[in-house]
């Protein structure tokens, strides 16, 4: 890594840390922008629900179809619903949902705030006595923290439904038996950590999108760059958080 790249990395890390600290400082102090928070929750949910649902369904279906031959080879075909459900709920659905949201929400926040920045709309908000950080950043970060876990729960349900169809393409399993097999194996120790880590995914996607947009420079070219770098950085951070979450779950023995 050359010296100037390393310096840029350190500079960016410092700035984003300051931005995050400002989020915590301003996010829990009045005035609270509940109406805008609600708007952002609706926008995020509305924008991504369809995509997340379809992806969850396809993931459930594909993983089941692909796992079936291996399970059959080991004579463990009856374990298929349990194994697929655990891998879907613990890892695949939260990470895939976060990656979709990093692309969809991260870029949208980056581009929206970036364009507001270069057209002086953020300055206009400030001179009209509104704190733009509270109105634009705090609401978007909280909205993605609230909505991404919710989207993960929905994608889990749709993914398990896809898996049920996948199981029935190869063998015949009743819905009751399928759910029994799932809930015998699936515990709160599988579900809760995946929800908790999706809060952190939401936080990372929101804060990175807002940071990139809020500090956009160089006009319209900068807006494109902000949207693009928001997606790249958020995707990378999602994997880092996933790695840390796996290590923590391992250390405290939630396996």
């Amino acid at each position: 890594m050359n010296k100037s790249l390393f310096k840029t990395f350190l500079h960016e890390t410092g700035e984003i840390s300051y931005f995050t600290a400002r989020f915590f400082r301003e996010g829990f102090r009045p005035r609270y922008e509940f109406a805008e928070l609600f708007n952002q929750c609706f926008a995020i949910g509305n924008k991504t629900l369809g995509l997340v649902g379809i992806t969850g369904f396809i993931m459930g279906l594909v993983i089941t179809i692909q796992s079936h031959p291996s399970m059959q080879a080991f004579g463990a075909e009856s374990w298929l619903p349990a194994v697929v459900s655990v891998s879907l709920v613990r890892e695949i659905v939260p990470v895939i949902t976060a990656l979709i949201c990093a692309g969809k929400i991260g870029s949208s926040i980056g581009a929206e705030l970036g364009s507001m920045k270069v057209t002086e709309q953020i300055d206009a908000m400030e001179v009209s006595g509104t704190n733009p950080f509270k109105y634009l950043v705090v609401t978007r970060v909280f909205a993605s923290m609230l909505m991404i876990p919710l989207l993960v729960i929905i994608a889990d349900a749709v993914g398990l439904w896809g898996a049920y169809i996948g199981v029935n393409m190869k063998t015949e399993v009743s819905f009751d038996l399928y759910t029994n097999q799932i809930f015998q194996k699936l515990t709160f120790g599988d579900v809760i950590p995946s929800i908790i880590k999706s809060f952190f995914f939401g936080f990372a996607i929101g804060i990175i999108g807002c940071y990139k947009g809020y500090y956009t420079r160089n006009g319209t070219q900068g807006v494109g760059r902000a949207a693009n770098s928001a997606v790249v950085a958020a995707t990378f951070v999602v994997f880092i958080i996933d790695l840390i979450a796996a290590q923590i779950a391992d250390i405290i023995d939630i396996t």
Partner: peptide, 9 residues
């Protein structure tokens, strides 16, 4: 009054 007007899109 901003040069770019800064109306909220």
């Amino acid at each position: 009054l901003f040069q770019s007007n800064a109306l909220y899109d």
